[in-house]
């Protein structure tokens, strides 16, 4: 018998009451049907306010659904047994600032009933993994936002979970931290774990995910592999040229020209590439690089969604 999916939802819905005197219901998530496959990294993307955090809170029991059902490892959401196999990082986590990261991880480990030696070992390993091995005994009130985020990731991994739910895991991290998290997520997949992470930063999803699920105004609008979603054909060629400056004549098939210091960046049609190289050479210039540009996830969604969800919510590249 096939093992059940790590995560499956059918018709999952949630509305919030808004307003004080005259209250009305604002749908935050509408009939979500989603399956996360074993061993994949699924990016849960959408503009701010599209329902990503609501979904993760429903799955972790912080919110109660208005309708629909969800199963984690084949067990209903209400069951607590699957929680031993899941790790969760909330968005902008606040951890107890009077504790040191070691103490916090020990506390988290106790909630999984891990024996003390295991807790100590896991805490040591995880703090090294997130690059905090030199701050294990520093109270977290002295931590930067990025350091707290790293401890948040470590606590999500304390039980060596099979399924990781990460809400905006790159939030508040510097470039080094973002790279660390990217590697950490990829390492989890390598170890056979399943990762569902939400983000509104499309480049993160593009770099990491096997599949993406796209949410807009509480509705799942698309789910699939990036390769299927994005057109594989080359959109245009980007040519970096040195030398000719204004001496370079306009070339047939040229889409855009831009001066970058003493160089010129050209965007040209793929078929015009040969003509461009000849023209640059004739003008006494030199072609420094030629790069095919394919459609990015960001461009795809801007095209599909008109770049905005109509509610003032925004994407980030």
């Amino acid at each position: 018998m096939a093992e059940p999916s790590p995560l499956l939802t059918r018709g999952l819905s949630k509305s919030y009451r808004v307003g004080h005197i005259r209250q009305s219901l604002h749908p935050a998530l509408i009939d979500l049907d989603l399956e996360v496959r074993r061993g994949e990294i699924l990016g849960y993307v959408g503009p701010n306010g599209s329902g990503k955090t609501t979904t993760l809170k429903l799955l972790t029991g912080l919110l109660k659904p208005d309708g629909g059902e969800a199963w984690v490892f084949g067990q209903p959401l209400e069951s607590r047994a699957w929680r031993h196999r899941m790790g969760y990082l909330p968005e902008h986590p606040y951890l107890y600032d009077y504790l040191t990261p070691s103490e916090y991880l020990d506390y988290a480990g106790r909630l999984f009933s891990l024996p003390a030696p295991v807790r100590r070992k896991r805490a040591r390993e995880l703090l090294a993994l997130v690059g905090l091995e030199r701050s294990t005994r520093v109270p977290m009130r002295r931590f930067s936002k990025g350091m707290v985020q790293r401890v948040g990731l470590a606590q999500a991994l304390i039980n060596d979970p099979e399924l990781l739910l990460l809400d905006e895991p790159m939030s508040g991290l510097d470039p080094l931290g973002r790279r660390l998290v990217r590697h950490l997520i990829l390492d989890q997949r390598k170890a056979g774990k399943t990762v569902l992470f939400s983000t509104h930063i499309l480049s993160d999803a593009e770099t990491l995910c096997d599949r993406v699920a796209v949410l807009r105004a509480g509705r799942l609008v698309q789910v699939g592999a990036l390769g299927e979603m994005l057109r594989p054909d080359v959109a245009h060629m980007e040519v970096l040229v040195e030398g000719p400056g204004s001496g370079l004549p306009e070339i047939e098939g040229e889409m855009r020209r831009e001066a970058v210091g003493d160089r010129t960046r050209l965007e040209v049609d793929e078929k015009a590439l040969a003509r461009v190289i000849v023209a640059v050479d004739a003008a006494g210039g030199r072609v420094l690089s030629v790069q095919p540009v394919r459609q990015s996830l960001e461009e795809h969604f801007f095209q599909e969604m008109g770049g905005d969800d109509g509610g003032g919510n925004s994407w980030e590249g």
């Binding site: 607590r80 929680r83 986590p93």
Partner: peptide, 14 residues
């Protein structure tokens, strides 16, 4: 208010 219980309630803690 500070949401420090979020990561805890997602664990086996009821």
């Amino acid at each position: 208010e500070r949401r420090s219980l979020y990561p805890l309630l997602a664990k086996p803690l009821s």
